[in-house]
């Protein structure tokens, strides 16, 4: 095809007459932008200005709030404030630390309110294993559980980690003191010495999780509860 050099003259095809008369405009309305669109644009501009103003005005307050919150957490912003708030209300330092440890090690599965996870993780609130003699929960924390366990008429078949390596006697004592007194539980406190005693008695078996609730019942002679009607997990 022929190639003409580019010039300032229009090279449109067909009968275009536009550039003959700039103001000859047969197709165009006098105002090509519909007024509703202009109205919407105006409204958006007002909204945008207001949003910018209010958001920026609020920002310093937000920054200050963060500092306040950190200060309330005593310089150590614990990532589980609900549990800690509960415990600090009791003004018991030992329990409060137990609550913090509970938040770190236990609440992910057993939940901050001790209710467990339906069908998967047994509750600690109202569990007869938690409120039995202190040896039982100590032994559970040390060795973990791998086998079916019935808590509040529901059988759970999950796995609890073995924690004797992870947690010290003192940490276990603090956690259990908190758990045994939290929510509706009212069993007694646990001391570091009690944990040491149980730990010493289990030296050879520390790495073997308890094979479920029956093993615990047999070992610690927990009073058996009325058998549940079915072995199935209830919703």
């Amino acid at each position: 095809m022929t190639r003409t050099p580019k010039s300032d003259f229009p090279k449109d095809f067909g009968p275009a007459v536009r550039d003959v008369d700039e103001n000859f405009d047969p197709y165009e309305q006098s105002n090509p932008i519909p007024w509703p669109l202009l109205a919407i644009a105006g409204a958006l501009v007002i909204w945008g200005g207001a949003t910018l103003y209010f958001d920026l005005a609020a920002a310093p307050q937000g920054a200050a709030d963060q500092v306040t919150r950190t200060a309330q957490a005593n310089g150590t912003a614990t990532p589980a404030p609900t549990v800690e708030e509960l415990a600090s209300a009791k003004a018991d330092q030992f329990t409060a630390e137990g609550a913090a440890l509970f938040g770190d090690y236990c609440a992910t599965c057993h939940q901050p309110n001790g209710a467990g996870v339906r069908g998967a993780i047994p509750p600690l609130d109202g569990s007869r294993y938690v409120t039995a003699t202190s040896e039982v929960p100590i032994a559970i924390l040390l060795r973990g559980i791998a086998g079916p366990i019935e808590v509040k008429d529901v059988v759970y078949d999950g796995r609890m980690p073995t924690l004797h390596d992870t947690l010290s006697n003192d940490q276990i004592a603090r956690i259990l003191t908190y758990v045994r007194g939290a929510w509706s539980n009212s069993a007694g406190a646990v001391t570091s010495d009690q944990v040491q005693t149980v730990r010493a008695g289990l030296t050879d078996t520390l790495n073997q999780p308890w094979q479920g609730g029956s093993a615990l019942e047999a070992t610690f002679d927990i009073p058996s509860t009325p058998a549940s009607p079915t072995a199935e997990a209830k919703p």
Partner: peptide
């Protein structure tokens, strides 16, 4: 990142007016 907050202004605080602090 549980150490105390530093430079609290370097985040989106646009929600600050939405409720009381906790």
């Amino acid at each position: 990142r549980t150490y105390p907050v530093a430079h609290p202004e370097l985040r989106d605080n646009g929600y600050a007016d939405k409720g009381a602090t906790q």
